Amino acid sequence: NQESVVAAVLIPINTALTVGMMTTRVVSPTGIPAEDIPRLISMQVNQVVPMGTTLMPDMVKGYAP
């Protein structure tokens, strides 16, 4: 099972992602793959992401799977 990126904290809208904001977990449905965390650093979320929420591609500005 592939791990997906999950919010480790509440991430406010338009916040640039940092390593500490993200964790990984096997979830269903799957979100952004864990191995993409290095690509996500400094990208901004386009909505509020509650802690424990799986990051989906459409939540991150400029992210393309």
Rank of each mutant, 00 (worst) to 15 (best):
A8I: 13
L10S: 14
M51G: 13
S42E: 08
I41L: 15
S28L: 08
L17R: 00
I37W: 11
G62L: 11
D36Y: 10
R39Q: 07
M21R: 05
D36V: 05
T24Q: 14
E3M: 14
V6Y: 03
V5S: 02
V5L: 05
G20E: 11
D58P: 12
M21D: 06
I41R: 08
T18G: 05
A8P: 01
A64F: 11
T15S: 08
D36C: 03
Q44N: 13
S42V: 04
V5A: 06
R25K: 10
T30D: 08
P29L: 10
P65D: 11
V45C: 03
N46W: 06
V19E: 14
M59L: 04
D58W: 06
V9N: 09
G31T: 02
Y63M: 04
M51T: 13
A16N: 13
V45G: 00
L55C: 02
T53M: 08
I37A: 13
P65E: 10
G62Y: 11
P57E: 09
T23N: 09
V60E: 01
I41C: 03
Y63P: 04
V19T: 09
L10M: 10
Q2D: 10
I37S: 05
I37P: 00
P65Q: 13
Q44M: 14
A64N: 13
P57A: 14
T23A: 12
N1V: 08
P33C: 04
P50M: 15
I37V: 07
V48A: 10
M59Q: 06
L55G: 00
V19Y: 10
Y63G: 04
I37N: 02
D58L: 11
V27D: 05
N14C: 04
S4C: 03
L10D: 06
V26D: 08
N46A: 15
E35R: 14
Q47S: 09
T54P: 05
K61V: 10
V5G: 01
T15G: 11
V49C: 03
P29A: 12
N1K: 13
A8N: 06
G20V: 07
I32L: 05
M43Q: 11
Q47K: 13
I13E: 10
P29D: 10
G31Q: 03
Q47H: 07
P29K: 08
S42N: 11
V49I: 13
T53C: 03
P50R: 08
G31M: 04
R25N: 13
M51W: 09
N46Q: 15
P65A: 13
E3R: 13
P57K: 13
V9E: 08
P33M: 13
I32S: 01
P57W: 10
P33W: 07
V5K: 01
M59G: 02
P38A: 15
S4W: 04
L55D: 00
V49Q: 01
D58I: 12
V27P: 01
V9S: 06
R25L: 08
R39E: 06
I13W: 11
T18V: 08
V27T: 09
I11N: 01
G52Q: 05
L55A: 01
S28Y: 12
V9G: 05
M51K: 14
M22R: 00
S42Q: 15
M43P: 01
T23M: 14
T23F: 15
L40Y: 02
P12Y: 06
L40K: 00
Y63V: 03
S42Y: 05
I32D: 01
A16W: 14
M56V: 11
M56Q: 15
V45N: 02
N46D: 07
P29S: 10
D36M: 15
P65L: 09
M21Y: 09
N14Y: 12
P12F: 04
P29H: 15
M22F: 09
D58M: 14
P65C: 04
Q44D: 12
D36G: 14
R25A: 12
A34M: 10
T24M: 08
M59A: 06
V6G: 02
V60P: 01
V60W: 01
T23W: 12
Q44E: 10
P33Y: 13
